[in-house]
């Protein structure tokens, strides 16, 4: 069976894919909160800046961005290795889409909650950190779960800027063996399994967040 001989190389690629995906999700989430909060709570200048960031990175294609960064970063003296470029590109992408999730969830917190906080004389930061975010974050989790899967899938694009991820390894093996059906089936299954693991992980995180936000499990009147 040839396909067994492909596995070590594909597994190495899968590790690179996993690393790039996880790093991008982590950095992207931080960006998402920063931009999302800036959109809702920031002054005019700050929220406009955040809006521009969101629109530009949501409005131009990720693959175009990756190529652009690939050629542009060295010009500004940052001779990034492709992996960094890939993570920067994906993170900016996750941040832009994630900021919409954060913004939506913050806006979905009932106005009455803000009014109650105001009546108790809470400051803006306290209202955001203790009243709005804890309630909003629970609502964000399913959407962030989808975004995480999306990130894993989009990470395959970094193979096109010469990063040896799972897709890149598949291409290499196929070019040597011409055994397309086997190689790509294995690759698709590999991504599918990674998606399932990621989905499971996001569920666990969602449960932790729900408990962290201390919502009671069952309500009774």
């Amino acid at each position: 069976m040839d396909w067994l001989t492909y596995l070590p190389s594909l597994a190495q690629g899968a590790l690179v894919t996993a690393w790039i995906t996880l790093a991008s999700i982590a950095i992207g989430a931080a960006l998402a909160f920063a931009a999302g909060i800036a959109r809702v709570e920031g002054g005019r200048a700050v929220s406009t800046l955040a809006l521009c960031y969101t629109e530009v990175f949501r409005g131009t294609s990720l693959l175009v961005q990756l190529f652009w960064l690939y050629y542009a970063l060295p010009l500004v003296g940052l001779s990034f290795d492709p992996v960094t470029t890939g993570i920067v590109g994906l993170s900016l992408h996750v941040g832009a889409y994630g900021s919409e999730i954060v913004r939506g969830a913050l806006n979905a917190v009932p106005v009455a909650q803000r009014e109650a906080a105001r009546a108790l004389n809470f400051g803006r930061v306290h209202t955001l950190m203790r009243i709005c975010l804890p309630q909003a974050i629970v609502e964000m989790m399913p959407a962030f779960g989808n975004l995480a899967i999306e990130t894993l899938k989009l990470s395959s694009l970094v193979s096109l800027i010469s990063i040896a991820d799972l897709t890149f390894r598949a291409q290499s093996i196929r070019n040597i063996t011409l055994d397309s059906a086997t190689v790509y089936t294995l690759t698709l299954v590999g991504y599918f399994l990674m998606s399932l693991v990621l989905m499971l992980a996001m569920r666990l995180i969602e449960r932790m967040v729900r408990r962290g936000a201390a919502f009671p499990r069952a309500a009774h009147a």
Partner: peptide, 10 residues
């Protein structure tokens, strides 16, 4: 308030 507006997560 009419609708109490307690903080549900506390």
């Amino acid at each position: 308030f009419q609708s109490f507006n307690l903080f549900p997560h506390m």
